[in-house]
């Protein structure tokens, strides 16, 4: 069929671009609020900052319905296995955003109780600095993630960082033993 026979306009493009565009534009975060940052996350979702502009105002309470886990706050040794369980329940493709210094690196609480960075438990895509990050910082982190999703590959998400250890060609699924083992009693 020749082009001039068509009665409608159309665009051509690769399927991959379409998928990535769709993933970027309909990301649903799981509400995983832990501490101070959760309050700022709520504030980001509320009227003044309005995450709805990015199609992200619906915080899903079930991890099965969520694509993005915003780890908002400090992760304690007691919470670590729970966090890993919630992460494992999320459907692929999934992303993790470490919000605040406590989730990113332990922050000022370098002690026995806090996991020194949530990237020891789950692969993290974007780190948002701040204690707590202001809603603007969170939105910047989210936009960074959007950009990452839009420009990245759709089949293999992670090529470096903590994620690479979990998704290897030998074991296409996540390991049986969660890495969220309690990190032992410090001596």
């Amino acid at each position: 069929m020749a082009l001039e026979d068509l009665s409608h306009n159309f665009l051509t493009g690769s399927l991959e671009d379409l998928v990535k565009w769709a993933r970027r534009a309909s990301m649903w975060p799981a509400s995983f609020g832990l501490a101070c940052c959760a309050i700022e996350m709520m504030a980001a979702g509320a009227a003044d900052f309005d995450l709805a502009r990015f199609g992200m105002e619906v915080f899903r309470n079930s991890p099965r319905q969520a694509d993005l886990m915003i780890v908002a706050g400090r992760v304690s040794q007691k919470m670590a296995p729970v966090l890993r369980q919630v992460y494992d329940q999320m459907m692929e493709p999934k992303w993790v955003l470490a919000m605040g210094v406590c989730a990113s690196s332990g922050g000022m609480f370098n002690n026995y109780a806090i996991v020194q960075g949530v990237d020891q438990i789950v692969p993290v895509d974007v780190y948002a600095p701040g204690c707590p990050p202001s809603p603007e910082t969170l939105m910047h982190a989210i936009l960074t993630l959007h950009e990452k999703v839009r420009t990245g590959e759709i089949t293999r998400r992670r090529d470096s960082g903590a994620g690479a250890a979990l998704v290897t060609p030998e074991s296409p699924w996540t390991p049986e033993v969660p890495t969220a083992v309690r990190l032992g009693t410090p001596k």
């Binding site: 501490a35 706050g73 400090r74 304690s76 000022m108 109780a113």
Partner: peptide, 30 residues
């Protein structure tokens, strides 16, 4: 409870009185 145990009382023993405010202010974040 205990899922947000941060060890703040232990950290508080490591911070001077000047720095202590940064520690306690993160307890009740509201």
């Amino acid at each position: 409870i205990g899922y947000l145990h941060t060890g703040m009382e232990k950290t508080g023993e490591e911070l001077s009185y000047v720095q202590g405010g940064t520690n306690v202010t993160r307890m009740d974040y509201l």
